[in-house]
Design a protein around this nucleic acid. Sequence first.
DNA 1: GAGTCGTAGTCATACGTATCACTGATCGGC
DNA 2: GCCGATCAGTGATACGTATGACTACGACTC
Lengths: 312, 312
Amino acid sequence: MARVAGVSQSTVSIVLAGKAEGRVKPETGRAVREAAESLGYRPNVAARNLRLGRTRTVLLVVPTLASPFFGAVYTGAARDAAERGFGVVVHPWPDDANPARSPVDIEAIDGVLASSIAGGVAGLGDVPLVVMDSDPADPAPAVNFDVTGGMRAITAHLAELGHRRFGHLAAAVDAWTFRVRGEVLAEAGPLIRRTTAIDVAAARAAALDLLDRPDRPSVLVCDDDLIAAGAYKAARTLGLDVPGDLSVTGFDDILVATAVEPELTTVRLPAEELGAQAMTALLECLDGHHPPGVSLAGELIVRGSTAPPANG
Amino acid sequence: MARVAGVSQSTVSIVLAGKAEGRVKPETGRAVREAAESLGYRPNVAARNLRLGRTRTVLLVVPTLASPFFGAVYTGAARDAAERGFGVVVHPWPDDANPARSPVDIEAIDGVLASSIAGGVAGLGDVPLVVMDSDPADPAPAVNFDVTGGMRAITAHLAELGHRRFGHLAAAVDAWTFRVRGEVLAEAGPLIRRTTAIDVAAARAAALDLLDRPDRPSVLVCDDDLIAAGAYKAARTLGLDVPGDLSVTGFDDILVATAVEPELTTVRLPAEELGAQAMTALLECLDGHHPPGVSLAGELIVRGSTAPPANG
DNA sequence: GAGTCGTAGTCATACGTATCACTGATCGGC
DNA sequence: GCCGATCAGTGATACGTATGACTACGACTC
């Protein structure tokens, strides 16, 4: 390669690293790039990584990718990273994973972007870390959704419609984002609550539990759109019309929200934006800065699943 | 590290690479591993990659990760790869991506696993390649679903119920898997067809087109579960009951299939299995073998969206 | 004309691993 | 007691890059 261009290997390195400014004559630089192009030459990544001790790769830790939500987080993060020449390796961290076993080559990673919903990011050593959906008490830099605001928008909407007493289908996941939902809802008024896995069938069973009683609530507030889909099924089982006899709200605005009938009133969380902002923050950390925490607003999307309660 | 263990760097390398058999005394090996453990030492990946000229990393090319289907493919592939000490980097290839621009460091990749639905895998150079959902005429080793069998199961089920004339909501994607669906359906009997994007709203519009006519079909066969969700909405708009007035079938059995009401009759495609088998085949290729093509059977799942036609 | 400075590029080296060729030591066989 | 063989481990080297130190050369200053 260097021979073809008629220069030394050093010069090739300088030019292709984009550091030619003021150190290499423009025409020499051009000759190098042309030679590289014609030979299809690309610098060896492994050698570069070895020399620099950095890999321009960050790790994304999420509970699973078999969820369009985290797929969107990945998409946003990867786009943002690519713009700065970074790659993203994703590490799904299912509930049943053994946290002690880290199948990831931490040595090959410059930083970590973790969803707090994922089990553990402990034991990853001392790499720069940005957390998504994290407890604000967490010392690590964080990029969060304004879950409080989103939940308040829901309760305000429901109060305006005339609902006074809420049923809450809470996700049985120990994460800050779900705790906040519960707290905001509890502030808003009296409620009855049931926890459930984030799963249509489980949510249906939990919803039946809440609905099949004399004092049943006029609305089911669900921690997740999938749970809301389960609530729909429970309503149908009991012969309740949504939203005539029962209002339902979700959270996230995933695909399912518009696939069901009636379409779901929910809060849209900008998942791609979350990934992108979190990646931006992480890359700031890698540059030695200390980016401020970010809070992304959700947006209440009123669709057909909410209406005034039947009994006024 | 070598100093702590009291041996040379060579020996450390041999032990930690797992090649100690017959070359290093068991107790020496144990001492090395203990020293590594206590120091938290892990071999440098970049140096290993440089030395070996391989990275133990493969690239997965899919159209998007914001779909649980490809998320599942990833999950299966990653699990299978991890068992053999390989990592997976995923490269979403959206329709609007510029195929000429390959943002991936091909130099850092040992092989490629590509969904034929993804735009282009051309220009990736001469790396080993396994294709999923590929045209059987494609020379590359392939791992496919038995789409033909799945589609025949659907037509057989519908014929048995008494349906004679099909409406087909076809995905407007130029890929083998969708072409086959169309061909099998055309063999099965007379049909009217409309293409649509794989999107609830677009599918609803296409379905309205098929249904709002005097000779409307008694069943809508959809290339994808999401399209079926759109068909549901069209039916509701027209006041048609599913499955009383109109049967609907999907394909894939994604989450949406059980979130809608009535739950969808569809063909379950083992997406994780696809990813895993394809990865197995790719790793075979990397070992210099030529694995045979694989065809994975789908399974007809009869749920509540199909019934005999109204007019008998 | 000697000294200084800037420009354009080269040289040598180090990153941490895997592996080939090699060395001592121990041992069995005759 | 000497030879060959086996065992257990070491030494030296190369992978391809980035970079600090260095050189060659001309221009400019006084």
